[in-house]
Amino acid sequence: MMDTTSRLRTILVIDDTPDNLALMSRLLKDRYKVKIANSGQRGLTIAAADPQPDLILLDVMMPEMDGYEVCRRLKADPATRDIPIVFLTARSNQEDEHYGLDLGAVDYISKPISPPIVLTRVRNHLQLKRAADVLRDQNSYLESEVRQRTEDIRAIRDATIVALASLAETRDNETGNHIRRTQDYVKVLAEALREHPRFSDFLQPETIDLLYRSAPLHDIGKVGVPDSVLLKPGRLTPEEFEVMKTHTTLGHEALVRAETVAGSGDERSFLRLAREIALTHHERWDGTGYPQGLAGDDIPITGRVMAVADVYDALISKRAYKPAFPHETAVEEIRKGSGTQFDPDIVETFLALTDRFQEIAASHAD
């Protein structure tokens, strides 16, 4: 019975002998669309052109470019590497067969050919290719779906961060564009620190991106600070300052609860860096910060980076208890804090980036 399901399948026959090309054309033409090439180079050209063949029957012994070289080039080209190749050859020793199969061919048919064997093997390999094409299409579809779902998750993550950060900003109207500025400071600083051996392992591109997106939540805990303290038009008393300091733990606890609701593990949650920043960006290198009194490398890198960004912006911004300091004054204050308030290596990197910090401040001025 004629294989009607394969009638539109295309077979490319590459052979330098006209009689062999005529023989294969007669054998296959009632079942498949047949293309012929009388040289290896011509075969490569036809194989790469649309519509591409579904199967290639390839003679081994040809002048100028033998079948092995043709096969090698077809498999090296991404456009043709998935087309199955069946060698047709008068060579019958196992070494030749192994060599051809190692190059990527799927089968070997010895000459003189047996028509029933050729037709059966062609049909079988076309069925295998059809199955492989379906599987490849399914994999491509699944990869596309995964990419789309990942993009959706990232969009939800970013929208969540923006919503939470905006909520905090409405509670503390003196900060103006503080959130946007510190976000950009953090990114610039982290990208530069990636070249430093102390930070390169941690500050990979994905982490830097997450750090940038998480930075707006550093003061999310201020939502829980009473208005009488948060909005006081003047310096805080020691007792009030103790209340203000709780914004670090309030923010951390809120983000931990959000993680719990989302069912995210510590290492998988997009809020992991956000809660770390919220809790530790007021720790000091010498251990005199809050809320945990961490010192040195016990302070997470995220908190150390945020501390420099946060303090620089606080210094250049007008507050109820202080005027806005000039950029140069802010830079000098950060310099003086090296080794006491801030990680010395982060300060050194900051000092090389002061022009960028000033540009960012100007682009998001209050």
Score class of each variant (00 low, 15 high):
1 M>H: 05
5 T>E: 15
5 T>Y: 07
15 D>S: 01
17 T>L: 12
17 T>M: 13
17 T>G: 12
20 N>A: 05
23 L>I: 11
28 L>M: 09
31 R>F: 11
35 K>Y: 14
38 N>G: 11
39 S>R: 03
45 T>V: 10
49 A>P: 12
51 P>Y: 12
54 D>P: 01
55 L>F: 14
57 L>Y: 01
58 L>R: 00
59 D>W: 05
61 M>E: 10
63 P>W: 04
64 E>Y: 10
66 D>R: 05
75 K>Q: 10
76 A>D: 15
77 D>H: 08
78 P>C: 13
81 R>K: 13
87 F>G: 09
89 T>D: 04
92 S>Q: 14
93 N>D: 15
94 Q>R: 14
96 D>C: 08
117 I>W: 10
121 R>Q: 13
127 Q>S: 15
129 K>S: 13
130 R>E: 04
132 A>Y: 08
134 V>I: 15
134 V>Q: 13
135 L>K: 13
136 R>S: 15
137 D>K: 11
142 L>R: 11
143 E>I: 03
145 E>Q: 15
146 V>G: 05
150 T>I: 00
153 I>H: 07
154 R>L: 05
154 R>Q: 04
154 R>K: 03
158 D>V: 04
160 T>Y: 02
171 R>P: 03
180 R>Q: 11
180 R>L: 14
182 T>M: 11
183 Q>I: 01
185 Y>R: 06
189 L>W: 01
189 L>Y: 02
195 E>W: 02
200 S>E: 09
203 L>F: 02
206 E>Y: 04
208 I>T: 00
212 Y>A: 06
212 Y>R: 15
214 S>Q: 02
215 A>I: 00
221 G>A: 03
223 V>T: 14
224 G>L: 12
225 V>A: 03
230 L>W: 12
234 G>V: 00
240 E>W: 03
241 F>D: 08
242 E>S: 15
244 M>T: 06
247 H>I: 10
249 T>P: 05
251 G>V: 02
251 G>P: 12
259 E>L: 09
260 T>V: 05
264 S>D: 09
277 I>T: 06
281 H>C: 05
282 H>C: 09
283 E>I: 02
288 T>C: 09
291 P>W: 03
298 D>I: 03
305 V>Q: 01
308 V>K: 03
314 A>Y: 08
317 S>V: 07
320 A>P: 14
326 P>F: 06
326 P>K: 02
327 H>W: 06
329 T>D: 11
338 S>W: 04
338 S>F: 04
341 Q>R: 14
344 P>D: 08
345 D>A: 09
351 L>G: 06
352 A>V: 11
363 S>D: 12
364 H>E: 13
